[in-house]
Design a protein around this nucleic acid. Structure first.
Lengths: 70, 70
DNA sequence: TTTATATGTAAAACATATTTTACTTATTAT
DNA sequence: ATAATAAGTAAAATATGTTTTACATATAAA
């Protein structure tokens, strides 16, 4: 699932490390999610949306044909 | 994290089994999530929101003080 | 009141998300 | 050009989410 974390993070002039601290995960987690290694947990998605001043639905680009994925 | 899946599912007169099939998970997964055993993955949260005609943010009740949870 | 459908629950196996540690490359500032 | 900060990546360990199988209870229909 695509997301606009990197773009929105840069708008707010935050480093991966700073966003990691704000959401209480490691920098590697932020990096992996920005680079589509895996999707975050639901609660981390909410924290990211909150810190980036948006909603989960706006931050993540869910496509109908992702129906088969977990 | 609380959610309003059961309530919204009943509005649409769907059984847990039917919602499970629509979102391509097992009935036990729906049951566990409705009864707050664990939170769904992000992609399942999107599928549930979609089938229940709502958004992830509206379906799940994220609270700021859940900051410490994963 | 028996039968069918729906819901609650549990353990083991399996899949995915996150941390930790560590090293590398890229970008920015001095 | 060197130093500092930021970003990309990876393997192993741990945590969490999902399936499978199975059984129990509750609710609705015949």
């Amino acid at each position: 699932m695509k997301n606009s974390i990197k773009r929105r993070r840069k708008v707010l002039k935050l480093s991966q490390e700073e966003l990691a601290q704000l959401t209480k995960v490691t920098r590697q987690t932020i990096n992996a999610i920005e680079n589509d290694k895996y999707d975050p947990s639901l609660i981390l998605a909410f924290k990211l949306a909150h810190q980036l001043h948006t909603t989960v639905n706006a931050l993540f680009d869910y496509q109908e044909n992702e129906e088969d994925l977990k």
